[in-house]
Computed example of a mutant assay.
Amino acid sequence: MGALQRVMTGGLAAFLLTGGASLPQAAEQEKPEACPGLIASAPPLVIRAALAQNEVGVTFVGHATFVIETPQGIRIATDYNDSVRPSTPPRIVTMNKAHSTHFSRAPDPEIAHVLRGWNPAGGPADHDLTVGDVRIRNVSTNIRTYGGTTEYDGNSIFVFETAQLCIAHLGHLHHTLTPEHLTKLGRIDVLLVPVDGGYTMETRDMMEVLKSINAPLMVPMHYFNSSTLERFLSAAREHYPVEFSDTASVTISRASLPRQPQVLVLPGR
């Protein structure tokens, strides 16, 4: 078990922040405090025993799907699809449309909220949903079509605000981000990053995205195999320390965020 994973699960490693310390100074100066909103300080209704009020559970199910669990027990699955799913239906799912492994045509009927990262009627998707102790919003981006053209607003970066943390899932991002995108994102604490190196973006372009967002914790996804993952990690190590988790699930709090940006690899499919 790496040092970063120990602090995620126990909050004891000496080289990470303790208490409610702030993010790196550069990130605070460059990013507006758009996240978290008032929902982050709302009193909890029912607290799952395994999570404190300031903790969020993140589990890598596989491909681009994570389950995010809030202190009140709200479960969210990202890029929910028909191939890789959590074992039990979450309350909320987000989806994107670049490939069928990022959306479902038949979501489980037990799911209360299905948030699509594109608008079937055209134009950008526009989500801003609060359920319990989590706020979910999206920032629209573009995708490449199979013919090589641009489909505007075909993807969404979803942002999950809970427990004083802002977690962003890049979805099937196909381009670097503009200042307008970054302003809409605001401060991001945990970034879930596709690192395939081609289907989404080339590694050098994805590294530019990571630098522009400057999240303290970055978690790779969408890497298919170990060689693809290692190609990304080789580039990432030039800028960030890399830790490996023994388990697919970690517990994260604002106090346990790294002092400087780091990459944490969770085992998954």
Results as ranks from 00 to 15, higher is better:
D108K: 01
F160L: 01
G122Q: 10
F158M: 01
A112Q: 09
S41Q: 09
E30C: 07
A21K: 13
S87R: 12
T145L: 05
P90S: 01
V61C: 12
R48H: 02
G117D: 07
E55M: 13
N155E: 14
R269I: 08
I74S: 08
L191W: 09
L45F: 05
S245Y: 13
P90T: 00
R144Y: 09
V263M: 14
T251L: 09
L115A: 05
N142C: 00
P241M: 09
P216Y: 02
Y80E: 12
K97P: 02
S253L: 08
A27R: 14
L12K: 11
P36L: 04
L257N: 06
E180A: 14
G37F: 04
D246S: 14
G132T: 13
A77W: 13
D79E: 15
R105A: 13
G171S: 00
Y223W: 12
F158G: 01
P107L: 08
Y146W: 09
T149E: 04
F60Q: 11
G37W: 07
A98S: 02
S234N: 09
S41K: 11
D189V: 04
A168C: 08
P71S: 03
G198A: 03
R259T: 09
K97T: 07
D153R: 03
T59A: 11
F244K: 10
S104A: 13
A34Q: 11
L45E: 07
L38N: 05
S245R: 10
A27Q: 15
A255I: 02
P220V: 00
E28H: 11
F66W: 12
E238A: 13
T203A: 08
R91C: 03
L185W: 04
V139R: 04
R105T: 15
T162V: 07
I39N: 05
P89N: 11
S156N: 11
H102N: 14
